[in-house]
Design a protein around this nucleic acid. Structure first.
Lengths: 157, 157
DNA sequence: TATGAAAAGATAATCCC
DNA sequence: GGGATTATCTTTTCATA
């Protein structure tokens, strides 16, 4: 991380992870600083890239029936060009919300937000299995959500 | 979803998913509205719960070495009380960023942000396997991140 | 009922210490 | 880093269609 962050910076980052709609004075008070230095730190944290974005978290259930499905892909050997097309395809499909390469026998883990089982069935055959290099898809549907956050645990708080 | 949302509301929600730091005038311009009706819609979307929170997205890599690991848990039968303790424990462990109950033979999928393999080894034996009802843990480590977002695909945009 | 315009209030951003 | 000032944006009110 390059320790250019002190405890106050970490406190600020963690507050922003929880609620980024607070004013700089409110955050300042929470972390024990006055408004202007706190604001300066926030600007610095954005400029240095520690804060990548500020986004609204929507209520998935209120926006319609949908379920997360984990899909593990087994991949064949890919040329650089195919790998780029694969990556780009994943970027371009909004229902794929996360994608990771894996250790072990399956090669890629996807998290897919599926509007329905029928949709996912078609998605598997018409989309996933046609992506460059995809040889096999193993899917695990989720039943319910226990926890879902993007808050990163910050060291030494 | 109860169609109390029109296309403008969905456009606003999607903008906020991408960048919630924009002013209401900027968002108004993007969706083709003037500032005050746009602002009122945003308020309504918050009040009705479509917008759950507004958070900063941090750069995980800049904040130190870490890797996501997917852990699939096989669970035994749980009493209601044990289930509550299990759920609470998951809530309380910040390194567990997501948790879902599953269809199929494994019962729970966790996404864990591990600072290191050594940490995860200890976490498996000292924490996961001691949670109420946990009988077996199968872990899949990720090698690299291809995509990671919380942006929900919104219908009819 | 929804919109637009405009005033009042709060916040962000800058300056100086 | 803190305090005070200015610029900007948010939020409320009011008039209009």
């Amino acid at each position: 991380m390059a320790n250019e962050l002190d405890r106050l910076d970490l406190k600020i980052l963690d507050r922003l992870q929880v609620d980024a709609s607070e004013s700089s004075s409110e955050i300042a008070e929470r972390v024990g600083l006055s408004q202007s230095p706190c604001w300066r730190r926030m600007q610095r944290l954005k400029a240095k890239g520690y804060i990548k974005a500020q986004v609204a978290v929507l209520d998935r259930e209120k926006l319609g029936e949908s379920m997360y499905i984990f899909a593990q892909l087994q991949m064949g050997r890919l040329t650089d060009e195919e790998r780029d097309r694969f990556t780009q395809a994943i970027e371009d499909i909004p229902e794929i919300t996360e994608a990771y390469t894996l250790f072990g026998e399956m090669d890629v883990m996807l998290k897919v937000l599926a509007p329905s089982m029928g949709w996912y069935q078609a998605f598997t055959f018409r989309t996933l299995l046609r992506l460059p290099g995809v040889q096999d898809v193993r899917s695990t549907a989720t039943l319910s959500e226990i926890k879902c956050t993007h808050r990163l645990p910050l060291p030494s708080l």
